[in-house]
Amino acid sequence: MKVLTLNFLSCAVKTCKSSSDSFPLHPKEAELAKDDVEINPQLLVNVLPRIDWAALRTTSTELGFPTLPDQPPTAEELEADEKMLQELHTLLMEMQIVEGKLVCGHCGHEYAIREGIANFLLPSHLV
């Protein structure tokens, strides 16, 4: 699962949705792999408004990547900053969590990731 995807995910438990602690989910014992994806500045610029920046900062730090700036770059800034482009491209689009867990900060439920696929099926008492 790509780091980009993680930015769109919150806890699957309905009662967690209203809690800000259910997003982002926290990687645990994450094993990372890097895909080779051709850099596409236009794609990054377009995806950027869809990203929750504060959550991405948290994720980046938790995965051991460099701390991101407080505020997201504007489209112009991003297009002009090759280093930032490359860093965000690698983090969002190339990095994958292939094994590990995602933990909800609200209910503590752990979702397993195996062979790159996260499983959000809930045990019956959490549905």
């Binding site: 699957a12 309905k14 994806v37 596409n40 236009q42 979702y111 499983n119």
Partner: peptide
């Protein structure tokens, strides 16, 4: 990946129930 657009290159899949979707509101 389409060289000019490339959205498909970063598409992703996961296991989830349609009644308990893990996506955040307005994602």
């Amino acid at each position: 990946a389409d060289a000019t657009s490339g959205g498909a290159a970063i598409s992703d899949v996961l296991v989830a129930d349609g009644l308990s979707l893990p996506f955040r509101d307005g994602a």
